[in-house]
Nucleic acid binder design. Structure first.
Lengths: 206, 206
DNA sequence: CCTACCGATCGGTAGG
DNA sequence: CCTACCGATCGGTAGG
């Protein structure tokens, strides 16, 4: 994990450490697209030469790998902490949704990059594989919630998972920390809409 | 509009017309990203030379513009047909959601490309501007539905719109026509979850 | 005569 | 600084 990103030892020549290099790189990748970002442009934005980047990483590819792994590690921490709890599946599902939104907001640029990965390189395919793994864990939780009768039985669990996390993941498209909306408020809105529905009154199945 | 895509006049040398050229181009753009697709690679996939592409369009830029405009035109047709109807705002909103999903499925590659536009070029910024226009129309409908008391008043209309269409738009991430799932079934699932909620029983506000 | 395409080549920029 | 490649453009031509 990139846990000490931006706060590694401050001895030695001042300049970028790997964490701060990633912070800037990911922001540029999100602006221009990973493939649309040349190492030349990236170096300009960093204020260093191209060759200086190669001191920190082996290439553009490794910048991507380290960035998406940071997002994936944070998301997996959510489902792993959940796996050791007990309680009703629906409550655990709601908790995973809320915690995922917190991670998404806290690691916004990294999750954004992750969600735009298409699978053209080995690194991208490995990232997609880990995303599918995450989906499987959530889908399993949805299935358990259906089995215990706490969520509607008339939508396929895999489809439910996709639409639920489609809503969650769409947050990266518009959320900006500067606007002062807190992660918790977004999580409240998502759980209200997805779990209890937009419509007033009740048309729910038993 | 690209209405006569793939079925323009069949006089002249057989080969690509603009519509069929777009069909292939958009597919390649979605695979490799717009910026990540070189005209050389595109030409190879088309089975013609780079210069042959320039016979049809002025450049890569125009390929993008024609493609996203096709998606936008189809989406605007949905809200424009809705503007002339009357009835409860919530029913009109549900109809816009259903029809948008139909468009999204019918024009899947074009809408996919549209939703990945980031705004780095003039063409991309114009596409984003038209998307925001669409969102405004929908957001207005959500506001009306809140005013008439048919959807929950405790979530901001703009946020509701974003999350609702976040769920709708996420369909492009996994929907594949080959799997036999019809647009109507997807629309049913979305409206069930977003309008009536996942949870069984009722915790709705009045 | 029209549509669709070719080979060759330009100035410029990518990654390393 | 080098090599490889990019998008764009030219004059010319084949099929129908």
């Amino acid at each position: 994990m990139a846990d000490n990103a931006g706060r590694s030892n401050r001895r030695g020549r001042p300049g970028y450490d790997l964490g701060r290099l990633l912070d800037v790189s990911v922001r540029v990748f999100n602006e221009r697209g990973y493939e649309g970002t040349s190492m030349e442009v990236l170096a300009q934005r960093l204020g260093i030469t191209k060759s200086a980047i190669y001191y920190h990483v082996s290439g553009k590819d490794e910048l991507l790998r380290l960035s998406v792994d940071r997002a994936l590690d944070a998301l997996f921490a959510v489902v792993e902490e959940e796996a050791s709890t007990n309680g009703r599946a629906i409550d655990r599902l709601e908790h995973v949704v809320r915690r995922s939104i917190e991670v998404l907001v806290a690691e916004l640029p990294f999750v954004t990059l992750l969600l735009r990965v298409r699978g053209n390189t080995r690194v991208e395919r490995q990232a997609l594989a880990r995303r599918r793994e995450f989906d499987l864990v959530v889908s399993d939780l949805v299935e358990q919630a259906e089995a215990e009768g706490s969520i509607r039985p008339d939508v396929d669990p895999a489809l439910t998972t996709r639409l639920l996390f489609g809503m969650v993941n769409s947050i990266i498209e518009w959320y900006r920390p500067s606007r002062g909306l807190r992660a918790e408020q977004v999580a409240d809105a998502v759980t209200k809409i997805a779990f209890d529905g937009l419509r007033t009154g009740s048309r729910k199945p038993a």
